[in-house]
């Protein structure tokens, strides 16, 4: 607040004072008082008035400046009610009360949606757990009745399973609560499980698999990482090299981290699109080719889950040559490895 605006608010008051001084002056002139009184009384009144409004100005200036400083330093602005000290003047007290009331109402409103989302996530989880049993049963029926037709159905079932898994993790990725469990896990196990999950497609497309340097362990949620790897491997299959597809998975140790790399010799990604593949719904030049059916969800979700887990995800590619996705596990007190 500046002084000019403060004075502007007092226009009526100042106008009345000046009117009063003017009236007194008229009286003083009428009663023929001496010059000293004629000057002293109006000046005295004006000075006293100024003295009375100056502290009012400074108290407010201090309060509001402080308020704005606090807001500046605060990431979640709505928390201001919690840290704002109670002012000792009436309109300030009223302001603080108003902030507190609106804040409370907003938090309640946000909580309502948080609850709704949590509730929806729980429903999705429940639904997915329910649907896993018929999938498992169907797969068992196929196992007991192997032929060309059931083999094809089996492949479609794998797709259904992958889509339900994606929905599950999508629901998990959106809630605020922590939904993972960090445990020491071996990279070899994680990679084996992810490849095993995609075995039918990988064998059908005649992939050659090269796994090496996977002896490390990382502290992470195994299930989440397998899901992320699964998305990456599915992309490698989708955008494979049609002549002799290869998939190489290995890890390398950096000073501050351990990096798990998944590299294929597929069609690659057009220059300039490498980072955009993590955007939701981004399908890129490759994805728009009709037979690939890209949804633009897989890598977006992988990135989101990686962020939640505190690991990095990066992609390098050269069109027509290769694509390499790296998962970067940081080495710190929460996430150490040997």
């Amino acid at each position: 607040m500046n002084f000019r605006n403060f004075i502007k608010d007092k226009v009526l008051q100042i106008f009345l004072i000046i009117f009063g001084v003017f009236t007194i002056e008229v009286f003083l002139i009428c009663f023929n008082c001496n010059l000293f009184l004629k000057i002293y009384i109006p000046v005295c009144i004006l000075i006293l008035y100024l003295i009375s409004i100056l502290p009012e100005y400074f108290i407010r200036k201090k309060f509001y400046n402080n308020l704005f400083d606090l807001l500046e330093g605060l990431e979640d602005k709505y928390l201001i009610a919690e840290i704002l000290q109670k002012p000792n003047f009436e309109d300030g007290k009223i302001l603080k009360e108003i902030i507190e009331i609106t804040d409370k109402s907003m938090i309640e409103n946000v909580n309502k949606y948080k609850y709704l989302q949590e509730d929806y996530k729980e429903y999705i989880e429940l639904w997915i757990h329910e649907v896993k049993t018929p999938i498992a049963t169907s797969k068992m029926i196929i196992e007991n009745n192997k032929n060309e037709a059931t083999k094809k159905i089996d492949e479609e079932l794998d797709k259904i399973d992958n889509y339900t898994e994606q929905a599950l993790f999508y629901a998990r990725s959106n809630v605020v609560s922590q939904d993972y469990y960090i445990k020491k896990s071996s990279l070899q196990d994680i990679v084996n499980e992810a490849i095993c999950k995609n075995r039918t497609n990988l064998i059908n497309e005649k992939f050659s698999i090269n796994l090496h340097d996977l002896e490390a362990t990382v502290n992470t949620d195994k299930k989440w990482i397998i899901f992320i790897l699964n998305q990456i491997i599915q992309n490698s299959i989708k955008y494979r090299n049609l002549k002799s597809p290869e998939l190489e998975i290995y890890s390398k140790k950096g000073k501050e981290n351990i990096i798990l790399c998944v590299k294929d010799n597929g069609i690659g990604i057009k220059k300039g699109e490498e980072q955009r593949v993590f955007e939701k719904g981004f399908t890129g030049t490759n994805g728009r080719v009709s037979n690939h059916k890209s949804t633009g969800i897989g890598l977006y979700l992988s990135k989101k889950l990686s962020d939640k887990l505190g690991i990095g995800i990066d992609l390098r590619s050269e069109e027509g040559k290769f694509t390499e996705v790296s998962l970067i596990f940081p080495r710190n007190s929460y996430n150490s490895f040997e």
Binding site: K132, I135, K139, L157, D161, Y180, D221
Partner: peptide, 24 residues
């Protein structure tokens, strides 16, 4: 059909020898 680490750990704690998730 519950595919998460916490349930897996709990089951092992309750004395199960192995844990497989549907579809297995």
């Amino acid at each position: 059909s519950r595919n998460n680490e916490i349930d897996e750990l709990l089951s092992i704690n309750y004395g199960a020898d192995h844990y497989v998730t549907k579809p297995f």
